[in-house]
Amino acid sequence: MAWFRKEKQPRQPLRQRLEIPPDVWEKCEQCGHTDLAEKFARNVEVCPGCGHHRRLRASEYLAMLLDEGTIEEHDTDLRSADPLGFPDYPSRIRKASANAGESDAILTATGQLGGLPVNLGVMDFAFMGGSMGSVVGEKIARLGQRSLERKYPLILISASGGARMQEGVLSLMQMAKASAVLAQLGDRRIPYISILTNPTTGGVSASYAMLGDAILAEPGAVIGFAGPRVIKQTLGQDLPEGFQTAEFLLDHGMVDDVVPRKELKRVVGQLLRHMSGKPAAAGWASA
């Protein structure tokens, strides 16, 4: 054997050599960038490659925005009724609960955001597309009531295709209900911040989502009254590039700013302090 001859070994994939199980990797739906799932998680599900914001669960937003150990969830026992006797609705609710692990399409909580007490409601798209029925409306109304009582600012994060068809016109009325609560907050000068995530359309966008004293949107989020498919149908032609994205709404004067997820907590805190006459928090001014 020649002294320079290398021992031949079958080539092993990198993954095996490093003993990495296959589910550790995740691929960005937008740009195809592949990275460690852990890296996606650490980056609050924002692609490290292209900045694409993947969908986040409601519980993850609570953990991201509220200070550790301050979260107190409310009204976890509210469930949807079936007021219309709508075909298959109870079974769809059961399935959605099992899949999403939540009781309906919104979580509401009181907590502290950078030391500031707030009431935060977060919609969960994983539960029936974040559709708004009586439970969503009622939980928002009760959270708003808490804000009125304690004078705590209100923050709502929307992720929803709109009103829940299976509760018919009662879902529609939740738009009026939520708006009426917000008007009360407004009259009492209690700040309300609305955060729009992908997607925010239909009855949710046409009520509380567009009523914030400040309206922030996550990059790339689809926001609009009618869904793009419906408009395409009425138009009979393709929609312009970037139509109904957060950036499009910013250009058209419909939102105050587009804020990357990682910046949300800082920006919301800053806004709340401005709107409630509180001094700036330490460390934010330079951030």
Binding site: S179, A183, S205, S207, M210, L211, F225, G253
Partner: peptide, 24 residues
């Protein structure tokens, strides 16, 4: 409410939401 390009550009959602708020 009309679902179209111009309606979206000019804030159909906001216009409806504002009315709900102010009417209350």
């Amino acid at each position: 409410a009309w679902a179209g390009l111009g309606a979206e550009e000019r804030g159909q959602s906001e216009a409806i939401a504002r009315n709900l708020y102010e009417m209350s």
